[in-house]
């Protein structure tokens, strides 16, 4: 009876889901294919031969502005954001396990960081620095702007993790004579390691692709998304797609790396545990 009912609804929804996935990945696949356009090809189909001409073009300084420099800045900024996000979220997650004065306010502050429109954060930090007379730069105001976007996600993930975390393990460790540091280092940390990798993945990818919050906070030098946005207005060759392909492949590699790390940590834990 159940299987009977499933078949119709299941197939309709499966087709719907398939179309949704096509909708998500179709455009990305198209620019991936078009980035191998021949040297005389344009921004749309048909393909005028197949070449890596536009990828080579990407690494010539004049063609696309400062691709190398902006990529390097985005990388460094992403790594800085990731490190701070992981550490601060972990500490905040530990803090929120107990109720303390102002915990509700701090929690709502973190949530509101997600709700406040990005352009407001960008404008606010830009003005704040201007009023203080500090010159905005990608590694100061830009970093702060990115943290307002990545930290709430990190805090929410850690919040969810510790909500489901049984204190029995820590009690057992304490009963066996472990110091608080030992309990944290050898009991708590290994158990939450996969979630921390997840927080790091979010931190890096959100920062690496962030645009709206960086707009007024990056200062003189562009991050990669700002550079790409600048290109959209004056570059009309498939080099734009080549850049899209390179950055997307890079994002995919980061995701793959994080997932592999999570699986390896999980396996190792399963073997020991």
């Amino acid at each position: 009876m159940h299987a009977d009912k499933r078949s119709r609804e299941f197939y309709i929804l499966a087709i719907f889901f398939g179309l949704f996935v096509l909708f998500l990945y179709g455009p990305l696949t198209t620019i991936f294919i078009l980035s191998f356009q021949g040297p005389s090809g344009g921004l749309t189909f048909p393909m005028n031969g197949v070449s890596v001409h536009w990828f080579a073009n990407l690494f010539e300084q004049q063609a696309v502005g400062d691709f190398g420099g902006s990529f390097r800045r985005s990388m460094i900024l992403g790594l800085m954001t990731t490190t701070i996000t992981v550490i601060v979220s972990l500490l905040a997650g530990l803090a929120f396990r107990r109720k303390f004065k102002g915990s509700t306010f701090l929690f709502y502050l973190a949530i509101s960081s997600l709700v406040v429109p990005s352009i407001l954060i960008s404008l606010g930090i830009g003005l704040f620095f201007q009023v203080l007379g500090i010159r905005p730069a990608w590694w100061s105001s830009g970093l702060g702007a990115h943290l307002t976007w990545t930290l709430p996600f990190g805090v929410l993930i850690m919040f969810a993790v510790f909500n489901r975390f049984s204190p029995a393990y820590e009690e057992a460790a304490r009963d066996l004579g472990a110091t608080p540091w030992q309990t944290f280092r050898f009991v708590v940390l290994p158990m939450i390691a996969p979630s921390l990798i997840g927080v790091g993945l979010f931190g890096f990818t959100l920062s690496y692709d962030e645009f709206a919050r960086t707009l007024m906070t990056a200062g003189t030098f562009n991050t990669l998304p700002l550079e790409i946005y600048g290109m959209t207005t004056n570059v009309t060759t498939p080099v734009l797609y080549a850049l899209g392909t390179v950055t997307t492949v890079f994002s995919f590699l980061i995701i793959l790396l994080a997932l592999t790390a999570i699986i390896i940590v999980g396996r190792r834990r399963a073997r020991i545990g």
């Binding site: 990945y25 455009p27 990305l28 198209t30 620019i31 692709d209 645009f211 850049l243 899209g244």
Partner: peptide, 16 residues
Amino acid sequence: PFLTSNIIRMISWVPF
């Protein structure tokens, strides 16, 4: 896809 660049995802509609 949520973890890839929004701007690239917008650009990718151009050939369509």
